[in-house]
Nucleic acid binder design. Structure first.
Length: 299
DNA sequence: ACACGTTGAATTATCATCGA
DNA sequence: TCGATGATAATTCAACGTGT
């Protein structure tokens, strides 16, 4: 009879499309994965994986078996859960986060998290929503905090928080011109990358207000935008929450403009599966975590 | 308690195959 | 030809059972 290790190898080969990737994911070597599959196929009496194509796909009956294998692994996880206290989780957790969250409540949240999971090792990845979603889909991330709304096949999500986006500039820049309209005409806008939702929304607003000639610079680094705005290079179009200390100290100030970008909504996203219980638990913690207090704490 | 043999699951090294 | 892939053989190692 097959065992759970063989099922796990099979499920990950089907998900990742390769023996080697499954081995990497399970922290094993490729021959050990081959061996597990050989034993499983020996028990079943037939091949359940098509080796002659890339990515590797299950056979017709392999597909049927995959559904059962996932259910069996889920059932095992469910059965073991009452005997595994949350704090005992000792693996590496891959968390993807967009920069806005890094500069707002993430430090406080991670402090809280390391108290809940003292044995857990965190692998943090900071990137754009687009790239984090790709990494989540290829199972390189366990959980991602991204900008929404989110549409990703075979994934679950929970709403985390919402932040307004404002125009932010060096105070002396505003004093040097007569009005915010003039400021807009004379200085470029600095905002999120070109493939991001906030940029596309801003572009739409500018177009709608007859301001499509305004120069917009993009940066994948929000902190770069803050530094450039502080230097007087241009006007940042970012959530004020990420530069609250600079605003409080008067190094930056908010400017009223004829257009107002919509709020940015953030979501927690993961792929459901037999081993996603920690991702679900961490997502739930993130949802209930007092983010407002966390932001204040780091001010 | 210790030595020894067995077993299972992992590793490394290597090979054959395939596609760019 | 070369790099990536899966399969295979040889080897290692830890866990376990058994006999003294």
């Amino acid at each position: 009879m097959f065992d759970f290790k063989e099922l796990e190898a099979f499920v990950w080969i089907v998900r990742l499309g390769s023996f080697r990737q499954a081995a990497r994911h399970l922290h094993l070597t490729q021959p050990s994965i081959s061996d597990r599959i050989a034993r499983l196929e020996d028990t079943l009496g037939e091949q359940i994986l098509e080796r002659n194509q890339r990515p590797i796909k299950p056979t017709l009956r392999g597909r049927e078996f995959f559904r059962h294998a996932e259910k069996m692994l889920q059932a095992r996880q469910k059965a073991l859960l009452p005997f595994q206290p949350e704090s005992s989780f000792s693996g590496t957790f891959h968390l993807g986060v967009v920069e806005t969250i890094v500069h707002s409540w993430l430090p406080a949240f991670l402090t809280d998290l390391s108290g809940r999971y003292p044995a857990m090792t965190l692998e943090l990845e900071v990137d754009t929503t687009t790239r984090l979603l790709q990494r989540l889909q290829s199972h390189e991330l366990d959980l991602a905090f991204v900008t929404g709304p989110v549409e990703l096949e075979d994934s679950l999500h929970q709403r985390l928080c919402s932040y307004p986006v404002s125009f932010i500039t060096r105070p002396s820049l505003l004093e040097s011109v007569g009005s915010s309209k003039e400021l807009l005409e004379r200085y470029p806008l600095l905002t999120y990358p070109r493939d991001s939702r906030p940029f596309l929304e801003l572009q739409g607003l500018l177009y709608g207000a007859g301001l499509s000639h305004i120069k917009v610079h993009n940066s994948g680094s929000l902190w770069t935008i803050v530094r450039l705005a502080m230097a007087g290079f241009g006007i940042g179009v970012i959530p004020p929450v990420i530069c609250a200390p600079e605003l409080a100290r008067g190094e930056l100030s908010l400017v009223d403009m004829p257009i107002s970008p919509p709020n940015l909504n953030f979501y927690s996203l993961w792929s459901p599966g037999h081993d996603s219980y920690i991702a679900e638990a961490i997502s739930a913690h993130a949802v209930s975590f007092d983010k407002e207090k966390a932001v204040d704490f780091y001010r």
